[in-house]
Design a protein around this nucleic acid. Structure first.
Lengths: 155, 155
DNA sequence: CCTGAAACAGGCAAATT
DNA sequence: AATTTGCCTGTTTCAGG
């Protein structure tokens, strides 16, 4: 994982369909060398997978929300994890703070969100939820590397 | 946007490197037909772009956090939006609820998060922040379509 | 939407520095 | 030892029907 790898990751994150030849030009490498690096990054698990970014509104899910879930005892129950079969659920994180779980959901409507919340409330141990409805998304992207070496300044 | 398109999007979200021939087999179409559909979905903006999923830990950013930002007046100031040049910032949403903005960040360390918070606090109009540190991520994926027709049940 | 064909890029092997 | 050059296989992409 050197500076070239980080720049390569940044280029692929921006457009994963760029030809190895073009990537090589930008990195000062030949196409096979770029291929080798990508292969290694995939084997190492740095690149988890290639995917597409889908527009939420275009697929009929204009409502984005973050749902904080409070549970008695520990939050991660199999019943609660079962909700991930719902394609509206995009993320589930256990967090430290004044809530137990944060769930990111993308719904068709407020009614669909209500149904989802109902399902969450039906899980044993769930004490309550607090929802944050996104009014506008200014930025939404995957993990990024920086093109330059990160500076480790202290506090 | 018919059922075939939704299934195609689901397949591409799972693995965007699948050959059109293989996609065609699963969809009951020929490779050129799949190509046509993908082209249309891109032109319509349904597919926003092809990208790679990068492992946060592998690039030295094991610390995921959601930062709620409270501001006086309206949250979206140019100064605050300028923080998106930092690759640690993955998402910025204006939300309705007991906070103004939710920011998703992925940092190298608690010190790096502290610096980021410092930068946010330095923006005029920012009254306070509340951070939720992810202890464990159970699910993290992009927008998904469902393979079957969504049922619009009422409340 | 499918069949056939051309252009292109991906992936490997040998050769070179 | 690592990278580049060149080649072959396969996919992508464009016709025509």
């Amino acid at each position: 994982m050197d500076a070239t790898d980080r720049k390569l990751l940044a280029l692929l994150a921006d457009d994963a369909e760029t030809a190895y030849r073009d990537l090589g030009e930008r990195l000062g490498l030949s196409a096979p060398s770029v291929f080798e690096r990508v292969k290694k990054l995939k084997a190492q698990g740095v690149i988890k997978r290639n995917t597409i970014a889908i527009d939420g509104e275009a697929i009929g899910r204009p409502l984005l929300a973050f749902v904080h879930v409070n549970t008695e005892g520990w939050g991660k129950s199999p019943e609660l994890m079962a909700i991930q079969d719902d394609p509206r659920i995009e993320e589930i994180h256990a967090v430290a703070g004044d809530t137990c779980l944060i769930i990111k959901v993308r719904c068709e409507s407020t009614k669909a969100l209500e149904q989802l919340l109902k399902r969450i409330y039906d899980v044993p141990g769930v004490q309550g939820t607090r929802s944050y409805i996104a009014l506008n998304t200014y930025l939404e992207r995957n993990a990024r590397t920086e093109l330059v070496e990160p500076e480790m300044a202290d506090a």
